[in-house]
Write a protein that binds this DNA or RNA. Structure first.
Lengths: 242, 242
DNA sequence: GAGTGGTCTAGACCACTCG
DNA sequence: GAGTGGTCTAGACCACTCG
């Protein structure tokens, strides 16, 4: 079936077909798919092409393939949620930024080691206020390993998201972002900045960016106004090709 | 290079090689990789095998491939974080569960429509208390579309995670989980259950499980004690094959 | 028109699983 | 030993990009 006629690749159509069957409940959780050879036969395509479709389904979490046995229908991984910090409240396009302060703190081993910056005693701090419309929604404080000869541009300070900022200021390549989400009470000064009652709690998002080998390159702490900010996450793959 | 000698597939070694070069900064952000033909030449392997390696790198977010142009080094997507609800505080293995109540609420169109359960007026509610050791850490309340002839087993009610529970009780196949994370004050009864001061705020995790076509099948609301619970997320692919 | 990645084929050998 | 998926090849034609 050389279906170049209609531009949609055959392996993709095979994957879609099977996806439909799974979502319609025709192929149930745990059930075994036909073998690759059988699917090739059925669709009139070669085995490598079948495998391309199967790979797509596996990537989407719809099947598990076990060598020597076959491909089994499985429930999608609904417990694995994706937060896109660029589109879920944080770093939203609707947000405006106001730069509060930038400091280079030299020779403060205590601070550097608290942040996990080994072999380092100078730290850059950047503080911004995030607005949605006229309302302040979050305070963001960033701590960067100081890197000689890599000055930060004003535009970066104001507009770059955190991983991007770290990338620009570092020789080392950032490879991982570990984040913790928790709740804390606002400090008086934070409450003032956020124009909130002092008693209000806040959503706290703490990001740590690492280079290869678990070396922290930067730490970001966002203090978010509880009524003006929430985090959205979804199980649906953002880069989903199916 | 038929390197079956050492069990590690050639395409995998190619991908690892390039990954190392990217993480070491030898291949910088935006740089163009050699063409597939050149890589095939260099490693002495066929183009399809090169493509297998390239696909792995693309999946890990280390390169972007553009048809007709080539493959470009790109920063990994550090803004896309994965929360694994099974290993990040929620549904943790260390957690114990106490079933508080199970109810079938019949003929309550208002509740059903609030939950988004269309064409439906009966709702099952399940309330559990989660413990870490002897300490209550969260209250979990679930609302399920009632499905005739699909009784819930006691063991499921106590141990199943939410997507699993929905899957067991529904004919429809769950395909998506949309979650919102926010902050709210504890109600007096909730504070009592969590053995907390009434004034305490709480982390709120609201999950909605959908079938195909944006039909909600179930809603779960977790009210988490702020000092005993935090959510962890990471950019590192959990199913990372590289 | 030359170069690139995207799709696809028809074969091959392998390691693994299962009865 | 029969069946399965995993790896790999050496070819082909295509659509796209760029000068």
């Amino acid at each position: 079936m050389k279906s170049r006629e209609n531009l949609i690749p055959v392996y993709y159509r095979l994957a879609e077909d099977i996806k439909q069957q799974i979502e319609a409940g025709e192929l149930k959780d745990g059930e075994l798919l036909p073998t690759e050879a059988q699917l090739g036969e059925k669709y009139g395509i070669s085995r490598m092409t079948v495998r391309q479709g199967i790979a797509l389904l596996a990537e989407a979490g719809l099947i598990d393939t076990i060598k020597g046995k076959g491909s089994f229908v499985t429930r999608p991984r609904l417990n694995q949620l994706i937060i896109d910090l660029k589109n879920s409240g944080v770093n939203d396009e609707q947000l405006r930024y106001k730069l509060l302060s930038v400091n280079l703190i030299r020779n403060n081993l205590k601070l550097a080691s608290e942040l996990g910056f080994t072999g380092q005693s100078s730290v850059i701090t950047v503080k911004r206020l995030l607005f949605k419309g006229a309302q302040p929604v979050a305070i963001e404080e960033k701590f960067l390993r100081y890197q000689k000869g890599k000055p930060l541009l004003e535009t970066q300070l104001e507009y770059a998201d955190f991983p991007e900022l770290v990338a620009k200021h570092q020789e080392s390549v950032p490879v991982r972002n570990d984040t913790v989400i928790s709740v804390a009470a606002l400090l008086p000064e934070q409450a003032r900045l956020l124009e909130a009652d002092e008693v209000l709690p806040a959503l706290v998002i703490k990001q740590v960016i690492y280079a290869k080998g678990d070396n922290p390159l930067g730490v970001s702490i966002m203090i978010c106004h509880k009524d003006r900010f929430e985090l959205k996450a979804t199980s649906y793959p953002l880069s989903g090709r199916l």
